[in-house]
Simulated assay, not measured.
Amino acid sequence: MKSALIADDHPVVRAAVKILLKQEGFKRIHEASSGNEVLPMVREQKPNLVVLDLVMPSLDGLDVLTRIQTGGVACRVLVFTSQEAMFYQDRCMRAGASAFVSKTNDLEHLHKAVHAVMAGYSYFVQLPSASVALSALQRSEKQMIDTLSDRELTIFQHLARGINNKAIAEVLHLSHKTVSTYKTRLIEKLNVDSSVHLRDFAKRNHLI
Rank of each mutant, 00 (worst) to 15 (best):
M1N: 05
K2V: 01
K2G: 00
A4L: 05
L5A: 11
I6V: 15
A7D: 01
P11L: 02
R14F: 03
K18R: 12
I19S: 11
Q23C: 05
E24V: 04
F26H: 05
N36M: 01
N36Q: 04
N36S: 12
L39H: 02
L39Q: 05
M41K: 15
E44L: 04
E44F: 01
E44V: 03
Q45I: 05
K46G: 01
P47N: 12
N48I: 01
L49A: 00
V51G: 01
L52A: 12
L52T: 04
M56L: 02
S58I: 04
S58E: 15
L59P: 06
D60N: 15
L62C: 12
L65D: 00
R67Y: 01
Q69S: 14
Q69D: 05
C75Y: 00
C75K: 01
R76M: 01
V77W: 00
L78C: 14
V79L: 02
T81Q: 04
S82V: 04
Q83M: 15
Q83F: 06
A85H: 02
F87Y: 15
Y88S: 07
Q89G: 06
Q89T: 12
C92G: 10
C92Y: 00
C92R: 02
M93A: 09
M93Y: 03
R94E: 03
R94G: 03
A95L: 14
G96T: 08
S102N: 11
T104A: 12
T104N: 10
T104R: 08
T104K: 08
T104S: 14
T104W: 01
D106S: 15
D106Y: 03
D106E: 11
H109M: 09
H111N: 11
H111R: 13
V114F: 00
V114Y: 00
M118D: 07
Y121W: 04
S122M: 10
L127K: 10
P128Q: 13
V132L: 14
L134E: 08
S135E: 04
A136Y: 05
L137D: 13
Q138I: 06
Q138F: 03
E141H: 11
E141G: 09
K142I: 09
Q143T: 12
I145F: 04
D146K: 08
S149K: 08
R151W: 00
R151H: 08
L153C: 06
T154F: 03
T154P: 06
Q157V: 14
H158Y: 15
R161G: 09
R161C: 11
I163R: 08
N165W: 01
K166Q: 14
E170R: 15
E170V: 13
V171S: 15
H173A: 13
H176A: 07
H176W: 06
V179P: 00
V179M: 01
S180W: 09
T181M: 13
R185Y: 02
L186A: 10
I187C: 09
E188S: 14
E188H: 12
E188T: 12
K189Q: 06
L190T: 07
L190I: 10
V192N: 07
V192R: 09
S194C: 11
H197M: 11
R199A: 13
F201G: 06
F201N: 07
F201T: 14
A202K: 12
K203L: 14
R204M: 05
H206W: 09
L207G: 02
I208R: 07
I208H: 07
